[in-house]
């Protein structure tokens, strides 16, 4: 196996963030099952390496736009677990004061312009943020996350055209988890290689293993550099898989147990942890301890969220207008 150039602190950081996301999602599934969490939730479990790897390539003052499955991006961009969990439960202490919820999880204070209830709804936000950076010459970048399904939306093409024409600093990151709800990429898209959907706009594209945090980090870093050098947008496709169904009511009849096993065997957290132990960057004990530490954080965050109050009735009309 190729030796990874990684210091211990960084290895712990990546592994811990991925564990936080996984356990956050597992916890929500649990809360949904107990009807403590109401409504729906689109869970990111399985795709952790993408959010964590991509976020490792940017600075805190760079922007991101999240997806229709956005919890992971919020955590990786620096959102606080208790506030995020409280938001999922619609509590006053949530990062959006209980007005957003799972589908609209956002934390502008961390440069996160939000998840989106509309598939592909965030392309404009990302592209416009890129325009601000270009006009103000601030040398920031925007990471625009979206799923495979969103590449079939018109706005995807309008925005890629605009960003390419205006040379905007946006890295479009396609998380190909193979399904838009139940319809597979094969059944929905005329092109299975999703990079081909961006190549007509004359921008660089690449495909990486979305189950490998370092592959994602390195792939995105290359394109972030491209944007910072004033060379404009790019698109990277991260091949991945969501472990849970689209939402809690999804019986997953459109995919096989064998396919699920194939991806679970390549689990981003297990493979990265194993690699770090094999390469003696971390010990198994350290990996296990990290897992326990994250469990404790999630327990605390969940307790905080459950015990937090709902918004006051007077909040109904607050924050609509400035």
């Amino acid at each position: 196996m190729e030796k990874t150039e990684l210091d211990k602190k960084t290895a712990v950081f990546y592994l811990k963030q991925m564990m936080q996301i996984r356990q956050f999602e597992d916890k929500i599934m649990d809360l949904l099952g107990q009807n403590i969490a109401e409504g729906g939730s689109h869970l990111y479990a399985g795709q952790e390496a993408i959010a964590v790897g991509a976020m490792a390539s940017i600075n805190p003052d760079d922007y991101i736009v999240s997806t229709h499955r956005g919890h992971g991006h919020c955590i990786a961009k620096g959102g606080k677990l208790p506030e995020l969990m409280a938001e999922i439960l619609g509590k006053k202490t949530g990062c959006c004061k209980g007005k957003g919820g799972s589908l609209h999880l956002a934390d502008v204070s961390t440069g996160n312009l939000g998840a989106n209830g509309v598939v592909g709804g965030g392309f404009g936000l990302a592209t416009g943020a890129g325009l601000t950076i270009k006009i103000k010459k601030t040398n920031q970048v925007v990471l625009c996350f979206f799923g495979d399904g969103a590449t079939n939306q018109g706005l995807f093409h309008e925005c890629l055209n605009m960003a390419a024409k205006w040379v905007l600093p946006v890295v479009y990151i396609c998380e190909n988890n193979l399904y838009g709800m139940s319809v597979s990429v094969k059944r929905a898209s005329a092109l299975e290689d999703l990079t081909k959907k961006a190549s007509p706009y004359g921008i660089p594209t690449d495909t990486v293993d979305g189950m490998d945090v370092l592959a994602v980090r390195d792939g995105v870093t290359k394109f972030v550099k491209h944007s910072r050098e004033g060379k404009g947008p790019s698109m990277i496709v991260c091949q991945s898989y969501r472990y849970y169904g689209h939402s809690r009511s999804d019986p997953r009849v459109y995919r096989t147990k064998e396919e699920e096993k194939f991806w679970h065997d390549r689990d981003a957290i297990l493979t990265f942890g194993r690699k770090m132990v094999e390469q003696k960057i971390l010990t198994q004990q350290e990996v296990d301890n990290l897992d326990k530490e994250v469990q404790k954080e999630l327990d605390d965050a969940t307790k905080y969220a459950i015990e937090s109050p709902l918004p006051e009735p007077s909040a109904l009309y607050e924050d609509l207008y400035v």
């Binding site: 936000l125 943020a129 006009i135 925005c159």
Partner: peptide, 15 residues
Amino acid sequence: AAIAGAGLGAAVTGM
């Protein structure tokens, strides 16, 4: 759609 969307993105980031 891109005009409105990019306008929005620019507005929330300081323009």
